[in-house]
Nucleic acid binder design. Structure first.
Length: 951
RNA sequence: GCCGAAGUGGCGGAACUGGUAGACGCGCUGGAUUCAAAAUCCAGUUCUCGCAAGGGAGUGGGGGUUCGAUUCCCCCCUUCGGUACCA
């Protein structure tokens, strides 16, 4: 009986479906355990070998938990709204709903080949109206709540309205910005529009002006990653910042709780650190500076109020609303030119820029303590979204301020004497204050406190806690997303579409082109936009993060029509116990989901404060990108050069053209190259290079002919680099092909065997043979040479039990720390040793089958059947480790001289420390090393090692 | 720029709490079996000096702590992820 993976997989897949092996009930006496994979986006390229890495790990863990007596929820679904489908529609005219549906079908096929224990009856996709009805519903909930600062939680907006009606704004602080004060009487006098505008300062979903990347030529708003080097990736057109009214979510309201409650969750420390830094809490002061010749004042935020006497200039963001008002006539051109320059740059470029740029507005602020006139500049290093979008510059104690002062010849006043602290840098916040009036002589920490007090005393500012976190921009000018459940009346006042009218479904269309002037394609569908002659719909749609911020809750009760999930289901499943996904989601998705979950907690819809209790990051599997050098200067005639004849110093002359890895011989190795057949394939595929020349050290190939050199010697060397596996690099490895050849179990185990789950690693199909051998060897323990199943009922020996239990111990311990690669090593060692011992005993093979079952899910079923069992192995108990089988009578000690191993010796396990020292010293090899040396001391670590320190 | 991570043989990696560096697997070399191949099995495989016995070096680079450092501390280099509209 030979192992036929295809037949085995088919047989058991059917058995699982017929018997609903992986169906999960919300009603169970068992303890619950929720294992979640990050939401896949169903891309047109299909699944490549990198995608399942996390799914395999979580599947193994879910199966082990199930075999340990838990009721395990392990669902999957699709994050099916997104930009790529819309891009594809623009290019091909195929409706995103259609292409998305096809992609999902393909993904499901590919996933089902890998033996995952998903409960498919719980599948969801975010673009399904049954699903996005609830995304919209949560949005209306956000719209109708505000963040009550004193209660530190979300409250219904009606409470606020009632308060305004009876007491006005008294005792109410908006979450951020300057409080507008009004009495109850004034509130009642407000027009509807004024009331709406006022409430916008409080709502958790609100409107304000934001900046988008606008590309005039394409007539559309671009995502950051559609922009390369300041121009559109498609077409290379200029991109500028454009101000538009957009929806925002007040995520900053939850900044403090998101920060504090990080302590309660079991996530990797680096991830928590990234979130802490992203939230970026700082304590400082906001200070108002009077302006010379203007009635307005300029608010800045500083974490170093102690250095206020060192202020020699101010810098405000180029987008700052005051810029237009304060710029003097003489400076207008300079300021305008500079703003044009800044508008063409992305935030990343702005922050990464080392070169100092800026422009003088011509206006001055008045220093609140010295009365000095301080010039006001604009510069890209000040960002409008952070703090107040304005800083007081202290060139003596801030690196960027210092470069700026140097460049623009602005004086520098030293205010912190760091001579007491040699080696202290500007970031260290230590030193003694000088040149600063009442602050002189104080240590920095004390000076910060006193300066803040003085600022408050003078009524020009106050102590303030600030967050780097910004409110989430929630508007997209796209078709393929959730429509907002919002309508506007004739005055332009937004209101919610009532819950019983949800979902607001996406209207069908064949035109996915942008609506003009930054409007979404939806704005062109007039009979949809116009509701009743009185109201117009919001035509922007929500971003992809909307649907993925709460999907884990929908899995708890995916078919519910009355609620996003029933109270009972949420009470039972609560939150996710284990979440597996990539570190690239560290801040964006994981922040949004935490924010939504806390909001749903405040509103009483969930009973936990955090969505994901434990989180594991998975690394990426990288591909090999093969490319060839094209001479950029060869205009009429395309010339390629073999990598071995291209000189390092000449690199600028060449462009790297990616080549499909299937054409490359020895791909991924230093010797990778195209032979003649490979070149022929390449030019058949990339027809524009049909007549190109291919220069090598031995000859030139052109149009099917080779000049100079032998056909069999021809080698056109390619460049191999490790990088993303992607359709555009022609290096995608499809798991289907691997499964077809080696079986799903082999694929699963090989992916885990590649290395630690959290690390990035390159894919190399070559290594898979070792795992294939392991599976066949495991099989051969049950089925011997005569192809007959042959299992013995003899009692196992002490040695065999030791082999088995060493593996059980290692697999169970290492699984708990998600070190699956070492689990597999342990199982390999176990099978190798059992094979050597010719062991085919049931007493060993039965637990061994249950041990490997979560990894080799199909083969284990077949082996379980061979053992004479009926039900699925996946419904059995995981084997227990018994320490008594692993007790050693003797221990082999390394004997070291000065920490370096020089010999080894075996001693009984119960030898005393002093006996060990004596016996080790008598060792012949050690005697040789001690000869003529001074023995200073002997270090004996029982059960570990013995070290002689000599001189 | 800022935040986070990684760097160990030809390759993927192991060494969990400071205690034998290179488990396990790929590849490679030699051998057995075979008409031959596949498959399987056996032996070897960090580099370096040496016929050998046996030395020496060695975990990205430099320094430090320690009897002992891949592991802890400081500085530097390279690569990868994120940087708010890819998901």
């Amino acid at each position: 009986m030979k192992l036929d993976t295809r037949q085995v997989e088919q047989k058991w897949k059917k058995f699982w479906v017929d018997n609903e092996i992986y169906k999960v009930s919300n009603d169970s006496d068992k303890p619950k355990y929720y294992v979640l994979d990050m939401f896949p986006y169903p891309s047109g390229a299909g699944l490549h070998v990198g995608h399942p890495l996390g799914y395999i790990a979580s599947d193994i863990y879910a199966r082990q938990k199930r075999m340990s007596g838990y009721n395990v929820l392990h669902p999957i679904g699709f994050d099916s709204f997104g930009l790529p489908a819309e891009q594809y529609a623009l290019q091909t005219g195929i409706h995103p709903a259609v292409s998305t549906e096809q992609n999902i079908i393909r993904y499901k096929e590919q996933l089902s080949n890998l033996g995952f224990s998903f409960d498919w009856s719980r599948e969801v996709s975010t673009s399904n109206p049954e699903y996005y009805k609830w995304t919209q519903w949560i949005f209306t909930l956000l719209f109708s709540h505000y963040y009550d600062i004193s209660a530190q939680r979300a409250m219904p907006i009606d409470h606020l309205v009632n308060h305004f009606e009876s007491k006005g704004s008294e005792g109410i602080q908006p979450f951020q910005g300057e409080a507008v004060e009004f009495t109850a009487e004034e509130w009642k006098q407000y027009s509807d529009k004024e009331k709406s505008d006022c409430l916008m300062n409080y709502r958790l979903a609100y409107q304000k002006t934001g900046y988008v990347n606008w590309c005039e030529e394409l007539g559309t708003v671009l995502a950051n990653d559609q922009i390369k080097d300041g121009v559109s990736e498609r077409g290379g057109y200029p991109v500028v910042k454009k101000a538009m009214t957009q929806w925002y979510l007040r995520s900053t309201a939850y900044a403090e709780r998101m920060l504090q409650e990080l302590d309660d969750i079991d996530w990797p420390d680096p991830l928590k650190t990234m979130q802490r830094n992203w939230i970026g809490r700082s304590t400082g002061a906001s200070v108002f500076f009077e302006l010379d010749n203007h009635s307005e004042s300029l608010e800045v935020y500083t974490t170093r109020p102690d250095t206020i006497f060192g202020v020699t200039f101010m810098v405000i963001a180029p987008e700052h609303p005051l810029v237009n008002q304060i710029t003097t006539a003489g400076q207008e051109t300079e300021i305008k030119d500079y703003i044009d320059y800044v508008n063409s740059r992305s935030d990343i470029e702005r922050m990464a820029e080392k070169k100092v740029t800026g422009a003088f507005t011509g206006a001055y602020a008045i220093h609140p303590f010295t009365g000095a006139k301080v010039p006001i500049y604009i510069s890209e290093y000040v960002l409008i979204d952070y703090g107040t979008g304005a800083i007081m510059a202290v060139p003596s104690d801030d690196e960027r301020d210092m470069s700026f002062a140097n460049k623009f010849n602005i004086p520098i006043i030293d205010v912190v004497d760091k001579s007491k602290y040699p080696g202290a840098t500007l970031d260290d916040k230590i030193g003694v204050i000088i040149n600063s009036d009442f602050l002189n002589g104080l240590e920095v920490a004390d000076a910060i406190q006193l300066a803040t007090e003085k600022i408050e005393e003078k009524g020009i500012g106050q102590l303030q806690i600030n967050y780097r976190l910004r409110d989430a921009n929630f508007s997209r000018q796209r078709y393929w997303g959730e429509p907002f459940p919002i309508k506007y009346n004739k005055e332009g006042i937004p209101s919610m579409i009532p819950a019983d009218e949800l979902p607001v479904t996406l209207p069908d269309t064949e035109n996915f082109k942008p609506g003009g002037d930054g409007k979404s394609p939806l704005s062109l569908i007039e009979d949809w936009v116009n509701i009743d002659g009185e109201h117009l719909r919001e035509t922007d749609t929500m971003p992809a993060v909307a649907g993925s911020s709460w999907y884990y809750l929908r899995y708890m009760d995916p078919q519910n029509k009355e609620a996003f999930a029933s109270k009972e289901s949420i009470d039972y499943w609560q939150n996710v116990d284990l979440y597996v996904g990539g570190a690239e989601h560290a801040v964006a998705h994981l922040m949004y989901a935490r924010f939504w979950h806390k909001f749903l907690f405040d509103t009483g819809y969930v009973n936990t404060t955090e969505p994901f209790k434990k989180l594991i990051n998975q690394g990426k599997i990288q591909g090999i990108i093969e490319s060839i050098y094209l001479d950029k200067s060869s205009k009429d005639k395309k010339c390629f050069y073999s990598a071995d004849i291209v000189e390092e110093s000449q690199m600028d002359r060449y462009a790297k053209i990616p080549v499909h890895i299937d054409y490359v011989s020895n791909y991924g190795h230093p010797d990778s190259h195209l032979d003649l057949e490979g070149i022929q394939k390449f030019i058949d595929w990339a027809k524009e290079y049909k007549n190109a020349e291919f220069h090598t050290s031995t000859g030139v190939f052109q149009g099917g002919n080779l000049s100079n050199g032998q056909t069999n010697e021809f080698k056109f060397v390619t460049v191999s680099e490790q990088g993303k596996m992607s359709k555009s690099k022609y290096n995608v490895i499809n798991p289907d092909d691997i499964v077809d050849r080696y079986g799903a179990d082999c694929f699963r185990i090989y992916e885990m065997f590649l290395g630690p789950i959290e690390q990035d690693k390159p894919w190399d199909t070559n290594g898979i043979e070792g795992v294939f051998k392991f599976i066949r060897k495991l099989w051969s323990l049950f089925v011997q040479d005569d192809d007959q199943v042959n299992i013995s009922d003899e009692a196992a020996t002490k040695e065999e039990l030791k082999i088995l239990h060493a593996a059980i111990k290692k697999v169970r311990e290492d699984s708990e720390r998600f070190s699956f690669n070492t689990c597999i090593s342990a199982m390999m060692v176990c099978v190798n040793e059992l094979k050597k011992a010719n062991c085919n005993k049931r007493e060993i093979l039965d637990p061994l089958t249950r041990l490997v079952a979560p990894f080799a899910v199909f083969v284990a079923e077949e082996l379980w059947e061979m053992l004479g069992n009926e039900a699925s192995v996946h419904q059995q108990q995981i084997p227990h480790f018994e320490a008594k089988y692993l007790v050693d009578d003797e221990i082999e000690y390394p004997l070291c001289i000065n920490g370096k191993k020089r010999a080894s010796a075996v001693f009984p396990a119960n030898t005393s420390k002093s006996d060990l020292e004596k016996l080790a010293q008598e060792n012949q090899e050690i005697q040789k090393w001690l000869e003529g040396k001074n023995l200073i001391k002997v270090i004996v670590v029982p059960k570990r090692m013995i070290n002689f320190v000599v001189k």
